[in-house]
Design a protein around this nucleic acid. Structure first.
Length: 922
RNA sequence: GCCCGGAUGGUGGAAUCGGUAGACACGAAGGACUUAAAAUCCUUUGGCUAUAAUACGGCUGUGCGGGUUCAAGUCCCGCUCCGGGUACCA
């Protein structure tokens, strides 16, 4: 019988669906295991062959764990809100909900064809009101909370109000926007609106005026992780800096916990490192500088307190609040001109031409350690958003300050013995200090590290400043001036935001006529009719960003239909957190930070029982495209084969990889591909047209997109699954190359032929031989440990080796084949089900017990030793597995082949590596 | 610039602790079966090279240059190139 994958796969997919094989319930009698994939954004292009890579890997793992006796939660859903659907809506007027629904259906049918064990009963969609009700709920919780730095956790805002009532701002240590001081009396006397305004300064979800990334082309603000190199990640449009009033999440309050948490989770080092850099902890000091002839005192942040004697100027960020306080009348005009000139530069321009620019304020600061007056400048190389927006410049030991000093001809004072600052600054934190003495502090002769510590002590003791830890991590901007996202459950009364009462939730996304901003520049929701409460208070016009819906979806899968809570306590305590999360690294500084923050916040309030959401994380590599080229001779319609093109003047043209096989062009298909090539002529080599190739991003415009549906159609889902794993290590990026898929397909056919001899099932009940058991148990051992280590490519090889051995042993024994079917079940579930039932077992193989490895069967009686002389391998010898070391040594030296290599000398040493080799040192 | 990865045949990739480099595949070449093709099976396949023949022969070989070691793809030092992240973060 032929291996008919179409019939087999369809039949078992129906069986699984009809029997709810993958429906999972909480079951206290079994250990739980939660395997999660990063849910996809359902884009219009559908899945290409790269998308399922991670899903296949996690599916293998999930199925393996199930076979090992775990109750495995393996859900899937859709990250359904997002810009592309909305951009499409703007162009076509098509409601994003409709396109999204269509795309989801397409995704679903593509996913179904691959045979995943998802529990679709638990599907979530972020755009579903039953789902985003809980996104809105979480926002409400954040609005009603503040972060207590002493307790190191989020607390209800009512606890803060109690403190204000009792002692005002006295003695509070909480995360906030700006430091505020008021007494209990003052607090009580304030109008309600006044109090609300103050509370906004402390809420974890707060409305704040912050410098944002404004993207005029998209008409929205973007979070830091949505911007790269001055352009938006989606669309690549320029982004400018602008102060706007926006919803923000106080992620920064969690900076230290997000950092510390990394030590207790099993993620790759590189990913942890990326998050550490993104959080960007830096220990330093804040110091106060007085402005000469003025009452103004300003604060700077530095990690190099030791370089205080090398300060030759100060720099303020252009947006710094100090600017207006210090500028002298003489310099006012120059400063104004400078500020105007940089306002019009986009972020991108600023980065592109990294020119040193700046202007003198006319004012001088006084160095508290030597009383010297130093000029104060304004420059855009100092950022308003980091530290205090003001720095002390030490040109000798900071390259940016150095560039500025050279441009504005300011003095450079070296502070480290032996350093040469004539050409560039000396930035390293090493060496002995010099030129560093004044006002009771002497750092000369100290190592840099000692000097930093000593200076910190000194400024603390003398009230010149304080030790301070800064983080690069900013609060997340949470508003988007867009339509296709979760509406905020917020209305405004007297200009202050309030949360809608519970019975009004979820606040559903309204219909609008056009998906564009209003005439007056309001976000699209400004077009919605009656977008207000019953009392005619206006509702928030912004919607939430993409990461809102994806931050807690893994919790919803635990209890997806619960109308009363994001997740019930029981469900949460059973599933706890994700044991294995599989997804790409591109979310390192976005989703994976926000999710951790969101989870920690819910943990603080007692809604979830684990502090970290994802215990182990595996990053699958990107599947790149492998493009093919044909070479057209200029100004003709003649194409020349790759190795002959040197003789002609040619243009390289992308050709659809689906009409190329093994880099040989299907000429007929090419002529039909486009009318332009209908009459194409070819110059062939050896009767074939050979295409060139290159590795590029998989994209339509490169004609290198391979659709998994086509592969399934041609080879079957099991072959696709196996081949995706066989392609290389999971974590590694690699190009998709359909050449080679025949190898795995052949393997499956070989396996099939162990069951079928021509037309009849040829399985026997004979007892397996030692040799057969050995082949099987080697495989059990290998596949088990490979799956545990996510080394799926080598397990596929192991299967091939085993089946080759069994084929040459002509082994058709049920006892062996049964176990083989189970071992293969995670990889080729359809085939395994089929084989399992062919052997006469009841379905489903999904619930069979994973075979137990027995070492006895794989033990060798003799072991082949490599014999080497001075490390050079020369010949092999067989020894009994339990041969004594001395006997092996003696036998090697006595062997006639050794004489040649020993060459009459006395061996200095003989090294015996058990079970491997013997090395004789002559 | 900084941080993190990586480099192994014509190709994808194996090599758990430093211990016979190239497993397993693809491709290629040759052969069997076939009227033919497809499918299937068998042999060879890193490079150079020896011998009249036989071969279980020799040399060389994991980006480059050094080093440690009885032994290095693997460890150390210095480079080159490629990929990813990040970027005036004081």
């Amino acid at each position: 019988m032929e291996y008919n994958f179409r019939e087999i796969e369809q039949r078992w997919q129906e069986f699984w669906r009809d029997n709810d094989t993958y429906r999972i319930k909480e079951d206290a009698s079994k250990p739980k295991f939660y395997v999660l994939d990063m849910f996809p954004y359902p884009s219009g292009a559908g899945l290409h062959v790269g998308h399922p890579l991670g899903y296949i890997a996690s599916d293998i793992y999930a199925r393996y764990k199930r076979l090992k006796g775990f109750n495995v939660l393996h859900p899937m859903g859709y990250d359904a809100y997002g810009l592309p659907a909305e951009q499409y809506a703007i162009q076509t007027g098509q409601h994003p909900a409709i396109t999204t629904q269509k795309n989801i259906e397409r995704y679903r049918s593509q996913l179904d064809k691959i045979g995943f064990c998802f529990d679709w009963n638990r599907e979530v969609r972020t755009c579903d009101p039953g789902y985003y009700r809980w996104t809105q709920w979480a926002f409400e919780q954040m609005f009603n909370s503040y972060y207590d730095n002493d307790l190191n956790k989020a607390m209800p805002i009512t606890a803060l109000i109690d403190k204000f009532e009792a002692n005002g701002s006295e003695g509070i240590n909480v995360a906030c926007g700006e430091e505020m001081t008021f007494t209990a009396e003052e607090w009580k006397k304030m109008a309600k609106v006044e109090q609300e305004k103050i509370l906004l300064n402390y809420r974890i979800a707060y409305l704040g005026d912050t410098m944002v990334n404004w993207c005029p082309k998209l008409g929205t603000v973007l979070a830091n992780d949505e911007v790269s190199e001055g352009v938006s990640i989606r669309g690549g449009y320029p982004v400018e800096q602008k102060v706007m009033r926006q919803w923000c999440l106080r992620v920064s309050a969690y900076a230290q916990r997000l950092l510390d948490g990394l030590d207790n989770i099993d993620w790759s080092d590189s990913l942890k490192e990326t998050q550490r850099n993104w959080i960007g902890r830096s220990e330093g000091a804040e110091m106060q500088f007085k402005v000469a002839d003025s009452d103004v005192v300003f604060t700077i942040f530095t990690t190099r307190a030791d370089t205080i004697f090398g300060v030759t100027f100060m720099v303020l960020a252009p947006e710094s609040e100090y600017v207006n306080q210090v500028v002298t009348p003489e310099q006012a005009e120059a400063v104004k001109q400078y500020l105007d000139s940089i306002k019009h530069r986009t972020e991108r321009e600023r980065i592109a031409d990294r020119k040193v620019t700046g202007v003198f304020t006319g004012a001088y600061a006084i160095n508290p350690l030597n009383n010297k007056q130093i000029p104060i400048y304004i420059s855009d190389y100092v950022l308003a958003g980091y530290g205090t927006g003001a720095i002390m410049a030490v040109p000798a030991h900071d390259s940016r300050d150095y560039a500025f000093a050279k441009t504005f001809d300011l003095p450079i004072i070296p502070l480290i013995e032996g350093c040469d600052v004539s050409e560039e600054s000396f930035d390293a934190k090493e060496g002995k200090m010099m030129n560093s003495e004044g006002n009771g502090l002497n750092l000369n002769g100290l190592e840099v590290k000692e000097a930093i510590a000593k200076t910190k002590e000194f400024i603390k003791a003398n009230n010149l400043g304080k030790v301070k830890v800064n983080y690069r991590l900013r609060d997340a901007i949470f508003s988007r001036q867009r339509y296709w996202g979760e509406p905020f459950p917020v209305y405004y009364k007297d200009g202050m935001p309030h949360i809608l009462p519970d019975e009004k939730l979820p606040l559903q996304l309204p219909e609008i006529d056009k998906y564009l901003p209003t005439e007056s520049g309001e976000p699209p929701l400004g077009r919605a009719k009656n977008w207000e409460t019953a009392e005619h208070y206006p509702l928030e016009l912004c919607t939430m960003p993409g990461f809102a819906g994806s931050s807690a979806y893994y919790l919803r899968y635990m209890d997806p239909h619960n109308p009363n809570a994001l997740v019930s306590k029981e469900a949460n305590e059973y599933w706890r957190n994700v044991d294995l999360y599989v997804g790409g690294t591109e979310h390192a500084t976005g989703h994976l930070i926000y999710s951790r923050f969101w989870n920690k916040f819910l943990f603080d309030l007692g809604y979830v029982c684990e502090d970290e959401p994802f215990k182990k994380l595996v990053n699958q590599g990107m599947i790149q495209g492998r493009s093919n080229f044909v070479y057209r001779i200029k100004d003709t319609n003649t194409f020349v084969s790759l190795n002959l093109k040197g003789e002609y003047d040619t243009t390289e043209i992308h050709v659809d990889v689906n009409i190329v096989s093994n880099d040989r062009l299907d000429i007929e298909a090419f002529r039909n591909w486009s009318p332009e090539y209908k009459d194409a002529e070819f110059i062939l080599e050896n009767g074939e047209y050979v295409c060139g190739w290159a590795v590029e991003k998989m994209s339509k415009s490169m004609y290198n997109v391979v659709n998994p549906d086509d592969i399934v159609e041609r080879y079957g889902a099991d072959t696709l699954r196996l081949y995706e794993m066989f392609l290389g290590p999971l974590e590694q990026s690699k190009p998709w190359d359909t050449n080679g898929i025949d190898g795995v397909h052949r393997f499956i056919k070989k396996l099939w032929n162990l069951f079928y001899d021509k037309e009849s099932l040829a399985v026997t009940d004979e007892e397996p031989t030692a040799e057969e058991l050995k082949a099987l148990h080697k495989l059990i051992n290998k596949v088990g440990s490979d799956i545990e280590h996510f080394s799926f490519n080598t397990s596929v090889s192991a299967f091939m080796i085993c089946v080759n051995e069994l084929t040459s042993l002509k082994c058709r024994k049920k006892a062996i084949l049964k176990e083989l079917a189970i071992l293969l079940a995670p990889f080729t579930p359809h085939l395994s089900e089929e084989l399992w039932s062919l052997l006469g077992f009841e379905p489903s193989v999904c619930d069979a017990p994973w075979p137990v490895y027995n070492e006895e069967f794989t033990k060798e009686s003799t072991i082949n030793y490599a014999i080497s002389f001075n490390g050079k391998m020369r010949f092999n010898m067989e020894f009994a597995a339990d041969a004594a070391r001395e006997d092996i040594e003696k036998a090697v030296l006595a062997d006639e082949r050794s004489a040649k290599w020993i060459d009459g000398k006395t061996p200095k040493k003989v090294i015996v590596v058990p079970n491997k080799l013997v090395n004789v040192v002559v």
